[in-house]
């Protein structure tokens, strides 16, 4: 439990200078569309995330100034919804089910394999930008345990040693 808390509590590294100012200009369109009321913040954030793939500090700051919404408020919304992320995501999101059924049928081994061979833990993105690993509680397909989703595709009845083989199908 302590480890989990420590993981969740890991201080967010600031991502200053990741996005060049020219690219940030693209945000002006979103700001023009949504500026005016605080209620439009979530659609604006959604579109910004679609544009950049994630919501780093400078994107949030620019939205804050442009939409006249305090930056702490935006950050509060971003960290509240699991949909939003403040770190870059891989091209493919792996959603590995760690629910009870999957866990006993080998999801734990799958997680260990991914940690060892791909080199990413839960919540992390591989260095080559291919995968982001997420752990989920249940995908509602316990009959197919262990289950893993990659992007929109669902893979069931996985024999743990074949995990990497499945991942190789996604470049």
């Amino acid at each position: 439990m302590q480890e989990r808390d420590a993981l969740l509590k890991k201080k967010v590294e600031s991502t200053v200078e990741v996005i060049p100012p020219e690219q940030l200009k693209a945000l002006d369109e979103i700001i023009d569309k949504y500026a005016g009321t605080t209620q439009n913040l979530i659609p604006a954030l959604k579109e910004a995330q679609e544009m950049f793939g994630y919501l780093p500090m400078e994107v949030q700051r620019k939205l804050s100034v442009g939409m006249n919404i305090p930056a702490p408020h935006i950050y509060g919304v971003v960290t509240f919804y699991s949909f939003f992320t403040i770190t870059p995501r891989g091209r493919h999101t792996i959603r590995l089910c760690l629910g009870t059924a999957c866990y006993v049928k080998g999801a734990k081994e799958m997680l260990e394999i991914i940690i060892r061979d791909v080199g990413i833990n839960v919540g992390e993105t591989s260095e080559d930008g291919r995968y982001t690993l997420e752990a989920v509680r249940c995908l509602g397909a316990c009959g197919l345990a262990p289950v893993m989703m990659i992007g929109e595709d669902t893979h069931g009845n996985i024999h743990p040693p074949k995990t990497i083989g499945i991942l190789d199908g996604y470049q």
């Binding site: 808390d5 969740l8 509590k9 201080k11 967010v12 600031s14 500090m57 949030q60 700051r61 804050s64 305090p70 930056a71 702490p72 408020h73 935006i74 950050y75 509060g76 960290t79 509240f80 403040i86």
Partner: peptide, 25 residues
Amino acid sequence: EEVQGQSEISFINRGMNTEVSTDFM
């Protein structure tokens, strides 16, 4: 927010891990 008009702090994260802080702490 309501009295100072600053909105310098906000609730961040959720559930048990909710805390009061600034953006990016």
